[in-house]
Design a binder for these strands. Structure first.
Lengths: 224, 224
DNA sequence: CCCGAACTGGCAGCAACGTGCCACCCCCGA
DNA sequence: TCGGGGGTGGCACGTTGCTGCCAGTTCGGG
């Protein structure tokens, strides 16, 4: 494959070398391109350069085509620019999901044959390790796929960037609601009047777009 | 560590060899023992043998102690025997979580220094690969930790084995509730009387142990 | 055929929730 | 000092949800 050796693993230094030495490898994906990263700033610059060279095979979501699965963390959301880029990636046929867990190191598995792991950022240039040992690659793929499975589809996360800041008091109200207290008991516990408590609940339900308390419970848990 | 070599990775054949060659390694965990597996039948027999030799350091949940984190899939639940073993593991100080995603290959990371990945079961004896390359180990740890983070605490899953079978009608009722319909509209849509619909809701809430509809919504989403 | 168990539906009454209205208070700018 | 806006609490009233009671139905066994 390209000019790379058949050694169990090779360490590359910096994205430039990654693209030069492993570009062919990345572009050779035929069945599955599985990729996990915290956000879009690291990692993707290099691989996008690979694909922008026109060497990416067509994405066919159907069986037999290349399944492109990407997992990012919530840090990939946040600003509109990132969200737009994510939406563009998703629109190009890739399946994009957002994991609620942190992904400290970027990882990538190609067709279950090769894994590429990012190293630490120490000493300026980031290192990348290319792994070919089948059992190790399959183990990494298994873990990355588990993270993928546990993550939520991008579509369900896109609008959530504007409501991560939840009032401290609102959290208390949600807690009381989730605890199954009656309005009266909840208001007493929170030290506010029944009227005010119900105002809070009404505001929360309006925020969630819920028309019943059951629905509000479902939606609130979905949003965290 | 022990008699093992410093090679980038070593492949061991069968659990017996795993215990013989990597037992010291496993028992040498001092900071973090991170482990993922589908269930308790594979993998744990060997490692338990290691620990049963009295070589496991004391688990101190506090800082500075050994953090023992185990992720299993739902297949580790199901029968009472497995649940009892899991509860025993958790009671011994390990942090046990259940991942909703499949974990095709068992994986284990010790103190962020060594990773052990299970191979396929082909050819009778299962193989195990011991990885020492720092960047690869850290990449694996990152992925395994993400799976750990995304998984749910065992305590929240224990009672769930006896309610995976949910009545078709109950699902419809839950759907109507989650849709935010009033009882009247829901009963009409489901073709039953208001009284019967409310009976269903009351039964569901009793099953969930909820005392308010909001709480029922939260709990129902947690249970799926 | 009768009986009982299990389920359903209607009714009534009560508890809980939702909201409009108004009085009150506090803060801030004029 | 005087409003005015914004948040709060009390009150009232309507809606929705919860449940005990009873009558009707279905089904199976005796």
């Amino acid at each position: 494959m390209g000019g790379s050796t058949a050694a169990p693993f090779v360490t590359l230094r910096g994205e430039a070398e990654l693209v030069r030495r492993a570009g062919d490898l990345i572009a050779s994906a035929r069945e599955e391109y599985l990729c996990g990263a915290t956000d879009l700033v690291t990692w993707s610059a290099g691989t996008n350069a690979v694909f922008d060279g026109g060497r990416r095979p067509p994405l066919r979501p159907g069986p037999g085509g290349l399944a492109m699965r990407k997992v990012y963390t919530r840090r990939a959301l946040g600003d509109p620019e990132s969200e737009r880029r994510l939406a563009r990636i998703a629109a190009s046929g890739a399946q994009v999901r957002i994991s609620s867990a942190p992904l400290a190191r970027e990882a990538m598995v190609i067709d279950g044959r090769v894994a590429i792991l990012a190293g630490s950022e120490a000493r300026g240039a980031r290192t990348y390790t290319v792994v070919r040992e089948p059992d190790v690659v399959e183990g990494i793929r298994s873990l990355l796929y588990a993270t993928w499975e546990a993550a939520e589809d991008l579509a369900g996360c896109l609008g959530s960037a504007d409501r991560p800041v939840l009032d401290e008091e609102s959290r208390a109200v949600l807690g009381a609601l989730a605890a199954g207290l009656t309005d009266e008991a909840a208001a007493r516990r929170l030290g506010m009047s029944l009227r005010t408590y119900r105002r809070r609940v009404a505001a929360l339900m309006a925020d969630l777009g819920a028309t019943s308390r059951f629905q509000a419970g479902v939606l609130s848990r979905r949003a965290g």
